[in-house]
């Protein structure tokens, strides 16, 4: 499901044809959603973006309205698991016209490309976006090899 996702906002000519594929995929997703409404388009919650630099992996997820106390983050070896609960705020005096915001429990585990230093993992929420910074274990860091003449 993840392949063929366009790199939004990247004005690379090479991605044009993928745009077309993506549009087709979206239409198929919309169709499948009408047939199997429970299946969901992406199949997982929350969605992750993962990036890396020389020292860290960064895992980001959109979790609007959630605070650190609603989340449970665990790291073991190469596995990162994030679980939590999005509480529904129900006002007993109110009558609801629309309820689109989702509530409930979730958990997701992913495997990172290399081992991380579990003691130095840092997680923070900002404007509803969770960023987990996972320092790469010393032996997993890339090493520069000097070529001697």
């Amino acid at each position: 499901m993840l392949m063929g996702r366009p790199f939004f906002g990247w004005p690379l000519a090479g991605w044009r044809e993928f745009d077309e594929l993506d549009r087709l995929r979206r239409r198929l997703d919309a169709l499948s959603e009408t047939i199997w409404p429970a299946a969901g388009a992406a199949g997982v919650y929350p969605l992750f973006n993962i990036t890396e630099d020389a020292d860290n992996y960064y895992v980001r997820a959109e979790l609007p309205g959630m605070t650190g106390s609603d989340l449970d983050i665990k790291v073991t070896g190469r596995a990162l698991s994030i679980s939590g609960q999005r509480k529904a705020e129900t006002d007993p005096e109110a009558s609801y016209h629309r309820r689109e915001r989702r509530s409930g429990t979730f958990d997701r585990t992913i495997t990172l490309p290399a081992e991380v230093d579990a003691d130095k993992v840092d997680a923070r929420m900002k404007n509803g976006i969770l960023t987990v910074t996972l320092p790469k274990a010393a032996h997993a860091k890339p090493r520069q090899i000097k070529v001697k003449s």
């Binding site: 906002g9 959109e62 309820r99 915001r101």
Partner: peptide, 28 residues
């Protein structure tokens, strides 16, 4: 440039007000 999304909203009504709650992660 960039994508445009429809935020998910809750709208509820009470005797004296209507409240609209929208999920907009990343917005300041």
């Amino acid at each position: 440039p960039g994508p445009v999304f429809t935020p998910e909203v809750d709208i509820y009504e009470k005797d004296n007000e209507i409240v609209l709650v929208a999920d907009m992660p990343g917005v300041t």
